[in-house]
Design a protein around this nucleic acid. Structure first.
Lengths: 120, 120
DNA sequence: ATACCGACCTGAAGCTACGTTAGGTTAAAC
DNA sequence: GTTTAACCTAACGTAGCTTCAGGTCGGTAT
C-alpha cells in the first residue's frame, strides 16, 4: 500500500505519517527498492489505531512507549493491555468532564432562555 | 476577592488568570488603589465558566468572542446562546468520538486477553 | 528605624506539543 | 518530456500557558 492510500484510510495526512515514522511511532515500515514506503495492512491498521488514540488525546510520547512495546513482541502484551486500559480510563474521565460541562451549559442556556422570554 | 482566591476557586493558575485578562477574556476586572485586581463573585463565576469551556476544548479565540458579546450587554444574549449551543454540540461530537475509541479499545483489549489466555 | 518576607504587579521571553511548509531530488507514468 | 507522486531535511507556525527579571506594597521581627 502506498502512503497516499494509508493517509486516506487513516485520516492522517501524509506529512503526519512520515512524522510519526520518524518519531518512532511506527518504526517498522518497509521500503521498496525505490526507497518508497510499502505499508502492509497491519501497518495501516496500526496507524489507524494511533490515529484513534491521538484523536482522543493520547500524547505522542505515550504512543511512542506503546509502539516500543509493540515492537518488542508478544511478551509485552500484558504491558500493552495495561496501557490501553489506562487510556480507556482516561477516556471515561474525560467523558465525565464533558458531561459536567454539558450540565453547566444547559443551566446557562436555560438562563438565557428565561431572559429572552422576559423580553418578549 | 484576591487573585489567589480566584485561582483556588476556578482551578486556573494565577498566571493564567492574568493571561486571560490580557487576552481580553475578562476585560472588566476592577483594580484597588494599590493596582491589585479585585474580583467580584461575578468575575469569579465568569472565570469558572471560562475554565470549564477551556477544559472541554473551546479555543481561546472563541472564548474571546464570547467575552466580547458578554461585555456588550444583554442585547447579545441570543448570540451567546447560539455560541453555547454550538459548543454543546461540539461536546456531543466529542463524546461520540470517545465512545468510538472506547469500542476500538475494548476490541483490542479483548484480543489481548485472548492472547494471554492462550499462553497459560 | 531597618531589614526582610510574601503576595501582588508588569512586560517579555521561553517552552512543549504537534504538526505543516518550504525547498530541492528522484523516479515512474502517461 | 513533462506531470505526478514519492522522498529528504530543516525551518516555521500555532496554541496556550509558564517563567523570568525587576519592581511595589504592607506587615512583622529585630
Amino acid at each position: 500500500m502506498k502512503i497516499s492510500e494509508v493517509a486516506e484510510r487513516t485520516g492522517l495526512s501524509i506529512p503526519t505519517i512520515r512524522f510519526y515514522e520518524k518519531s518512532g511511532l511506527c518504526p517498522f515500515i518497509e521500503r521498496g527498492p525505490d526507497g518508497k514506503r510499502r505499508f502492509s495492512t497491519t501497518d495501516s491498521d496500526w496507524l489507524a489505531l494511533l490515529a484513534s488514540l491521538r484523536a482522543t488525546g493520547m500524547p505522542t510520547a505515550e504512543m511512542r512507549a506503546f509502539a516500543d512495546l509493540y515492537a518488542s513482541g508478544d511478551s509485552t502484551v500484558p504491558e500493552r493491555r495495561a496501557a490501553l486500559l489506562a487510556h480507556r480510563q482516561s477516556l471515561e474521565d474525560r467523558q465525565a468532564e464533558l458531561d459536567l460541562c454539558r450540565t453547566i451549559l444547559d443551566q446557562k442556556l436555560k438562563k438565557y432562555d428565561d431572559i429572552m422570554k422576559d423580553q418578549t
